[in-house]
Amino acid sequence: MSEQLPKAKVAMHWLVAIGVFFLFVSSWWMLSLPLPSEDFTYRQLPFQLHKNVGITIMVMVVAMIAISIVKKRKKLQIQKSRIERLASLDHLLTYFLIIACCISGYLSSSFSGWETTLWWLVELPAWSEENDDLNIFFSDIHLWTCWALLSVVSVHIGAALYHAFRNDDVIDKMFRL
């Protein structure tokens, strides 16, 4: 039987999964809405929600990394097989890409001149005045890190299905609350 994962980490894993897929599907739709102006405000709610969910996901991922670090310190270092090292790399890459997506999205929004109010409660700081070049730069990073994230998540789901069909206890760990 493999080691039990902390319940908080399992719960956050699934909340992050729901959030990430919601962000993908809603972003494809919201970018087809009319460009914003004084008259056209269709993008206001979806964009604000997109930023709120994104920032919340980033906080959860940081918490998951912190939990992993604390757990790893307590654990004896054992030799990992090649496949286990690849799985660790996939996890690291997923965490890195989620954080990169969120930070680049926030910076792009910040340089576009749009304010970010976290869950309509906390006003987050804008990093500078409106700057089109930096907005486009961070927007491109946001776009490509998100595509990369989708690829890595596909590998992650593929690996999960591999363990599910083998019916081993690796997959069970992610369901135990």
Binding site: I18, F21, F24, V25, S26
Partner: peptide
């Protein structure tokens, strides 16, 4: 589980659509 996650994202987006396009 994976289908549940995808479906939840799908229906949430549909809900958002109905709220925004009035």
């Amino acid at each position: 589980m994976i289908f549940g996650v995808l479906l939840l994202a799908n229906h949430s987006n549909e809900l958002l659509k109905q709220v925004v396009i009035a």
